[in-house]
Design a protein around this nucleic acid. Structure first.
Lengths: 207, 207, 207, 207
DNA sequence: CGTTAAGCGAGACGGTACGTCTCGTCTTTCC
DNA sequence: GGAAAGACGAGACGTACCGTCTCGCTTAACG
């Protein structure tokens, strides 16, 4: 009846502070060294922890970095500004700010690259990062519909498809602007982007 | 008009066939092993070449992979279909097809991740991949303007900004759909995406 | 009376069998390949040990070979034959027999050559090989003096000088005969050599 | 009219100065780097010569070093001092002086070590160095016999054996003193050594 | 309140790849 | 055809991390 069937009853319990220390050390190492020069031995040393402790909790570098990076995106939130355009602009700016931090840059793209050859890793990324933030799209649209800015959904499947499309466009465009074009996703750019997206949404919704 | 002004006159010249063999071997290794398990020693062996030959021509794994991946994108071309929407759909489908190949997936994201900590690498990516393909946006727009689908440009700076924005949106969205969401950028998705983008472009151009 | 005062208390202890296996593998490699073609990677493989284990215990090829060769000379012993001449002949024959073995030949001269440019290596050779065998000279002389074959020492400094001289002459002559002249240090040669040396010792002692 | 019967008639003749430059460069490299860190590429550079030129004239590092070192010993000569003891002391001092030079130390022992596994190299050493200097023993003995210090030879075979023995003792002892014991073969040591050797020779000759 | 069992630090272990160095050969052009 | 120049295939170098494996200690829950 227990939710965790393999709960260990005996033995010394795992240190409760170690996890946070390790994730923080991982982010610090990402900032200093970047993903490819980050080593688990170094992370362990920074966290004041033995390498074995680290391997007991994460399968490897990729899983560790996913968890370390995922925490960064949890601070995203809808501004609740009263208009869809402003909501989008607000979230995109927050997203761009996070992507500007070196621990996010370095780590996120690397684990995405790794995930192209590791199905379990891709699933972990979706669970920990992507799906968790997709709430912003859903909530933003719901508010816009409540305000009458967008028509209500009729087909739930089409609704999900559109949400996914918007999420891919928003996240993808900002990432590309920031990491590939390597130009700042500043207010001017975010405004242009939002304008184009909004016009498209409105026109599409109208048809 | 010499491409290499400082051509050495003496000594044995570099093998002219080795470069192509090495880049092909790199792509083969990317397919089989992915970026993180690709080793330069293995690439050299596959190419039938000594490791020193490889290091004589590329500074490291990143530079090599950039060159190997860049060649993949050179096959992109505008369909010349007669309408902007069809042109966009055509190019996006081609782009998605290339991104679906494992050598592109694995290599491209990895070098972008690496480039977040290596300015020279980022420049190489821009030169070899990004700027080279930006031609598609420029040419597509020019054709659309010639056909009267889009108004002619007045401000050259705004024109460049818009081209960059569109490029970031197209490339970023397809990459995100393919690699992060890990869902196929098939005809249905490409059509929805193109519709949204086109509506936005038309509405923006109208205002 | 602990030999290593700073014994580490923590961590996995070093394998106790590895040292002997490595030294034996080193001697086997010396026999097969000689010093200049001996590689540490090959020694590690022969010993069933990782290269890192080898480097953790020895600074390099030279130190390793010194230790491997030093063990060979530990089997030397005074015959206790009852006369100085017979003792000398006995030891010289044993020494020549060891020097005839390829692992000794190849290794000993090479590390001596290397030691001309490495003070620490020279010290290691003296400690591990030279000084350790000088006991034979001292003990042989002491026995001869006890038997009345040689007069007792009066000046301790002159005594040490003479012991060094004899050691250089014995070791040097046998090495030169064996390795440079490359002729066997057989019984006939050893007998002639011993005669000449004995005559010189007696005459010098008499004066 | 050419002195060399197989003189090449066509093409560019070999540079006559290159050989001397290469041997000098070899000695300079021995002084700076020692045998084990000396590389043929470096020697070629120092001599202002291409690596191919070097390989055209010597089979490898060992042969080159033998030739470079052999020249050093050609300056040895009998002092012609009028007594056997003084002749021996004189030659031994000269020999010790040469062995004290780093290019001799480093090179000589190394090629001897190499020669333990290379019959052709050993022959080259004997021809170029050992046998060439054995003249000193023969000439010194002949002069001593002419002066009546030593009895004339009767058995030519025994005569050769004794000359070899003395050569091994002289060369071996000085080498061991200098390189293994690493103490200076100064006048005091040479005097003691010569005394011991002379006494032995006289006593042996008398019996 | 002592047993027990997992967690912990430390660090050695067998591996693998790194990027560099030197080898001895080969292939150019110049003389 | 010799020489300088330098690229070539080969392979060892010594280092850095990998992920695993002892070790000798905590440190808590259970009995």
């Amino acid at each position: 009846m227990l939710s965790r069937p393999s709960a260990p009853r005996t033995g010394r319990p795992r240190s409760t502070t170690a996890d946070a220390a390790i994730l923080a050390a991982t982010r610090a190492a990402l900032v200093e060294l970047g993903w490819s020069k980050l080593t688990l031995g170094d992370v362990a040393t920074r966290a004041g922890v033995a390498k074995t402790t680290l391997y007991r909790r994460w399968a490897g570098k990729n899983e560790l970095v996913v968890d370390a990076v995922a925490e960064l995106f949890d601070e995203l939130e809808l501004p609740g500004s009263g208009s869809l355009a402003a909501d989008i602009e607000g979230v995109v700016l927050q997203f761009a700010a996070i992507l500007g931090r070196p621990e996010a840059k370095s780590g996120l793209m690397a684990v995405i690259a790794e995930s192209t050859r590791d199905e379990a890793l891709r699933a972990r990324i979706r669970t920990s990062i992507v799906d968790r933030q997709k709430r912003l799209v859903l909530e933003g649209r719901a508010r816009a519909q409540a305000r009458g800015e967008l028509p209500p959904e009729t087909d739930p499947e089409a609704s999900a498809r559109t949400a996914d499309l918007i999420f891919d466009m928003v996240a993808g465009s900002v990432v590309h602007r920031t990491l590939v074009s390597a130009e700042p996703a500043d207010e001017a750019w975010v405004h242009s982007f939002t304008q184009l997206l909004m016009q498209g949404l409105r026109a599409t919704a109208a048809s």
